[in-house]
Simulated assay, not measured.
Amino acid sequence: MPMTPVYALHMELPEDKRAGYYAQIVKGLAGRTRLLDREKETLIFASADDRDAAVPVMEQYKVPCEFENLLRLPSPLRLYPEFSDYGFLSRLEQAYLPAELAAIFRLAPEPGTGRPAEPRQAELQLREHLLADWPDEGEEKTYAVQAHQAELAEGIARAYGCRAVWLHRPEE
């Protein structure tokens, strides 16, 4: 199953008005759109339409903003040390990664290699490159790596008689 993106709006709040502005903006959004989650100056929406509905509020308060697509990771999950360099945990303790910087995959046996697949060994080799992993569909695990490490993940998978089945991989 492919990963479903969520839609972020990053605000650039003025330093001297941060707390007051933030409260006014959140209040202003209440009647115009549905906020899914937030973290500091990042507002997260379930749809692009909801995110776009927030833009007039940003214009009203003269707050510059930028858009970003995020991947919301399921719970429970294990986060690795490099996760915090790319992703974040929200106020609701939900984990997010930027969609253009992350690649998500599962390991599957590679048929026709003439040797048994060793997904556990592949996982051990991959660990130093992982951002996160989580259980999915029974005993299978799903893995997140930095997008630029997708080919490395494929090579490690092949070395252990497996293949990477991509659930999300940014356009190259």
Rank of each mutant, 00 (worst) to 15 (best):
M3K: 05
M3R: 12
V6F: 15
A8C: 07
A8G: 13
A8R: 07
M11R: 11
L13C: 01
L13N: 00
R18Q: 11
A19D: 15
G20T: 05
Y22E: 12
A23N: 12
I25T: 14
I25W: 09
V26D: 02
K27W: 11
L29N: 00
L29Q: 01
L29T: 00
A30W: 11
G31V: 00
R32N: 02
T33M: 02
R34I: 12
L36T: 01
D37N: 03
R38F: 07
R38L: 10
E41T: 12
E41M: 10
T42D: 07
T42N: 02
I44N: 03
I44T: 02
A48C: 13
R51K: 07
D52S: 11
A54H: 06
P56F: 00
P56T: 02
V57H: 01
M58E: 03
E59A: 01
Y61D: 00
Y61W: 05
K62D: 00
E66T: 14
E66L: 12
E66Q: 13
F67Y: 12
E68T: 08
E68V: 09
N69M: 15
N69H: 14
L70P: 01
L71T: 07
L71E: 01
R72M: 03
P74W: 02
S75P: 10
S75V: 03
S75T: 06
P76I: 02
R78K: 08
Y86L: 14
F88A: 08
S90T: 08
E93I: 10
E93K: 10
Q94V: 08
Q94I: 10
Y96C: 05
L97S: 03
A99M: 02
A99V: 05
E100V: 13
E100M: 14
L101R: 14
A102M: 13
A102R: 05
A102L: 08
I104P: 05
I104F: 07
I104N: 03
R106V: 11
P109D: 05
P111W: 04
G114M: 08
G114V: 09
R115L: 09
A117D: 09
P119H: 04
Q121I: 15
A122R: 01
L126Q: 05
H129K: 06
L130H: 04
L130W: 11
L131G: 00
L131W: 11
L131F: 03
D133I: 03
P135R: 04
D136Q: 15
D136A: 13
D136K: 13
E137A: 14
E140S: 14
E140M: 11
E140T: 15
K141A: 15
K141M: 15
K141G: 11
T142M: 10
T142W: 08
V145P: 01
Q149S: 11
Q149Y: 06
A150C: 13
L152G: 07
A153Y: 02
E154L: 03
E154T: 06
E154P: 04
G155Q: 15
A157T: 01
A159E: 11
Y160D: 10
G161K: 06
R163Q: 12
V165Y: 09
V165W: 05
L167F: 11
R169Q: 14
R169K: 10
